[in-house]
């Protein structure tokens, strides 16, 4: 089998136990796997951010989250993310989502499932997964929604409750503009079950907060979020 990222051959370890019970081969080779960095600590209990080593922690919430709480803009119970968005992961996500190399989801499958068990073991049994939607036009272009692909890895029912109404070229706007931009989501269907929002990358958290706000306002009891990277 070949590494789904670098395409080099992956050779299984043959020991007596793997000979009798062949181990399932990892989708990534050893060296590609080794470059991915998990988020190991949630230094902010709200957004799950991990400070760079050595940074001082005065509060168990980060400044952004404290500010959101003060202004009643904190709609998410918590966010957790699997990987640090580093130099190995960034081109993988880019190729996956923009080039449309769907198969790369295999590289994320086990970590996403593992992380889910770790961070969301206390999740309410009724919880449904809601992927952040793409605009119809962008969905046509990409032929798949990366958030939906992640959601489908989880042992939760997936529901589409939201619609994206206008463009999502967030990266070109400044941070301030992004925070002030009006809500790009519309409710498609309301729910009275708790929701776990799913997206690929947590950047400022604004997108997820906006989605959470709409769900909460329409009667959803609780919204958390889970992303592949931040």
């Amino acid at each position: 089998m070949e590494c789904v990222w670098c395409n080099k051959k992956i050779y299984p370890n043959v020991t007596w136990s793997t000979f009798l019970y062949p181990e399932k081969l990892a989708p990534l080779c050893h060296s590609c796997q080794g470059e991915l960095r998990w988020i190991e600590r949630a230094d902010c209990i709200d957004c799950g951010r991990q400070y760079k080593d050595g940074a001082k922690k005065e509060s168990n919430r980060c400044q952004d989250c404290n500010r959101r709480r003060e202004t009643s803009q904190q709609f998410l119970t918590k966010n957790r993310s699997v990987f640090q968005y580093n130099e190995q992961l960034q081109p993988m996500i880019t190729k996956w989502k923009y080039r449309g190399d769907y198969c790369l989801i295999e590289a994320f499958r086990a970590p996403v499932q593992e992380g889910f068990k770790t961070y969301f073991s206390d999740l309410n049994a009724d919880t449904i997964a809601v992927p952040i939607p793409l605009s119809p036009q962008r969905l046509q272009e990409r032929a798949f929604n990366q958030a939906e692909a992640i959601a489908q890895l989880l042992p939760l029912p997936t529901c589409e409750l939201l619609k994206r109404v206008h463009g999502e070229k967030q990266s070109k706007r400044s941070r301030k503009e992004r925070l002030e931009a009006s809500n790009p989501f519309q409710l498609f269907k309301s729910t009275n079950k708790p929701v776990l929002l799913i997206d690929d990358i947590y950047t400022t958290g604004t997108t997820l907060q906006q989605a959470a706000e709409i769900l909460i306002q329409s009667g959803c009891p609780e919204v958390s979020s889970y992303t592949l990277a931040r």
């Binding site: 089998m1 070949e2 449309g100 190399d101 769907y102 198969c103 969905l139 046509q140 990409r142 032929a143 798949f144 929604n145």
Partner: peptide, 17 residues
């Protein structure tokens, strides 16, 4: 190994690329 499968939202079926 250089063909992948995708559940395609354009045609609503799963096929290769």
């Amino acid at each position: 190994s250089l063909f992948g499968e995708i559940p395609c939202a354009r045609c609503n079926s799963t096929h290769i690329y």
